[in-house]
């Protein structure tokens, strides 16, 4: 524990480790190998929802609640990368400036860098670094989502869906993808008119989902007015307790490590096969229709 506190305080080192793993710089595999056994301590909360719902403000407000409980809080905030220039404006810190200097807090911004699904390819690695370095609670704030950015379920223990009043028909359109991944729903800016209606609509929508053991609770909050935050944290904790009791957390994490392993396997296989001398020749043969892709793949998989 004391060791953990020391590691957590070494801001520069944690930050540099994240840079190394994010960019797959030399030494990144060693870092991840080294820390892997220390991961799994942090509880990972995914924060997602449409652009402008107040995800950053809510992440800031929830972080304060956990900090007051004595927890160390890590935040990974993701914003989109321009597909044209490769550049990005990562602006989530604007809402979290006051916590920047708090010793229990660590915030890191990441660009999606071409990855679809609301996360960046390296998010998982960055999560592992902060987890192993002593975070108790880890927030992953996705990019503003539309309908199908559901990758967050593969990383988070609890997915918090942030909604706002007045989206109207948008809720309908979000039903298929997004509505299914929320474990807890927060209606932010609930001081705005129409919040009650949004809640009723959401509850109605949730009633249409096939019955499950966990029915996602809907909580009204206002991140800026600091209202409903305690109740929201309680709802997150209830979901955590539910999952721990039913071995759901274990299953969920098992599924998530499987995803991680498969991703690494895919990368390694593709790297091995594409560097193989036969690869180009087989491509040529495919162009000339001398060989079909399945046969080419079969040959490449042979040692």
């Amino acid at each position: 524990m004391a060791d953990n506190v020391k590691v957590w305080q070494d801001r520069r080192k944690i930050a540099q480790m994240i840079t190394t793993v994010e960019n797959a710089l030399p030494g990144h595999e060693e870092i991840l190998q080294d820390i892997y056994k220390k991961t799994g301590q942090a509880y990972i909360i995914g924060i997602t929802g449409p652009p402008g719902a107040g995800k950053s403000s809510l992440t800031d407000a929830l972080s304060r609640v956990y900090i007051d409980m004595g927890k160390r809080v890590g935040v990974i905030a993701i914003d989109p990368t321009s597909p044209f220039s490769g550049g990005s404006i990562l602006g989530d810190r604007i809402r979290m400036n006051e916590l920047s200097t708090h010793p229990q807090m660590f915030i890191r911004s990441m660009g999606t860098r071409g990855q679809l699904g609301g996360l960046s390819a390296a998010t998982h690695s960055a999560v592992m670094v902060l987890d192993a370095c002593g975070a108790d609670i880890l927030f992953i704030e996705t990019v503003g989502v539309g309908q199908s950015e559901v990758e967050i379920v593969k990383l988070a223990d609890t997915v918090l869906m942030v909604m706002v009043p007045g989206l109207g028909d948008d809720i309908q359109t979000m039903k298929a993808g997004i509505m299914e991944i929320g474990d807890v729903f927060a209606i932010n800016k609930s001081d705005l008119p129409g919040a009650d209606r949004t809640k009723i609509e959401l509850e109605a929508m949730l009633s249409f989902l096939p019955p499950k053991e966990w029915r996602p609770p809907v909580r009204m909050v206002s991140a800026t007015e600091k209202e409903g935050l305690k109740e929201l944290v309680e709802a997150i904790d209830e979901h955590r307790t539910f999952q721990e009791k039913n071995k759901r957390l274990e299953e969920r994490r098992k599924r998530n490590v499987q995803e991680a392993l498969l991703a690494i396997l895919r990368d390694k296989m593709v790297a091995r096969v594409t560097s193989d001398d036969r690869y180009k020749r087989l491509l040529e043969e495919m162009v000339k229709k001398e060989i079909d892709p399945y046969e080419a793949a079969r040959q490449l998989m042979q040692k």
Binding site: R11, S85, L90, R93, N97, S100
Partner: peptide
């Protein structure tokens, strides 16, 4: 302009203390 030049810009906004700026710079590496 930096974004359009392909850089990742972490924008932190107005009225920052030197301590906040340096904390952000370190965490963001």
């Amino acid at each position: 302009a930096l974004r359009d030049a392909g850089m990742e810009v972490i924008y932190t906004g107005l009225r920052q203390t030197p301590e906040q700026i340096v904390a952000a710079a370190v965490q963001e590496d």
